[in-house]
Design a protein around this nucleic acid. Structure first.
Length: 166
DNA sequence: GCCAACGTTGGC
DNA sequence: GCCAACGTTGGC
């Protein structure tokens, strides 16, 4: 059977809550991505396959930016926080017999050579249409095209734009 | 802290 | 099924 086409992802996290450094330093080498309670993001999670590359994005911080590369190491399985009445993400409609919410495990691969601020990404015409830079975007898990993924990874190897050129 | 964008809820 | 109200996200 032919292998499924590789898909590429962006996953957002607030660095005050869980940063890329936290992922790198995780004693188990990976972290489960729980707490997703948006159907579109859930569907993306369930489409992830082991080995898929993930861009790690820091949101809700001084300089929102893509900071590192991770990868999927375990495919979707039920998110137990949905069953826990004491958890912030408790959802009484999800029951263990037919769970509504899922999570995947991801592991850090490496940090980018330099982090790429949202502001800079928004200025690159090559990234037109990228969901991450669309205003009002609130998804914590998004798909990204291979072209956009490759462009972002290569952009991190280039020098940042000089302030005078803005 | 403000506010725009968006998803969800619930009255009708 | 429509849509106003509300809550949340997240850039600024």
């Amino acid at each position: 059977m032919a292998a499924r086409q590789r898909r590429y992802w962006v996953m957002k996290s607030e660095p005050d809550v869980y940063s890329f450094e936290d992922l790198q330093n995780d004693p188990e080498g990976h972290e489960h991505w729980d707490g997703v309670r948006n159907y579109q993001a859930r569907n993306f999670l369930c489409s992830q396959r082991v080995g898929d590359p993930v861009l790690f994005y820091h949101s809700n911080t001084d300089v929102p930016a893509v900071v590192g590369i991770a990868k999927v190491v375990r495919e979707a399985y039920p998110d137990p926080t949905a069953f826990d009445p004491n958890d912030n993400h408790f959802d009484p409609r999800s029951n263990p017999d037919s769970p509504t919410w899922f999570m995947t495990d991801i592991a850090a691969v490496r940090p980018l050579e330099r982090s790429l601020p949202l502001r800079e990404l928004q200025q690159r015409p090559e990234l037109d249409g990228l969901a991450l830079i669309r205003k009002g975007n609130r998804l914590s898990v998004m798909e990204i095209s291979k072209a956009h993924y490759d462009f972002i990874v290569s952009l991190a190897r280039k020098k940042p734009p000089s302030p005078s050129s803005r």
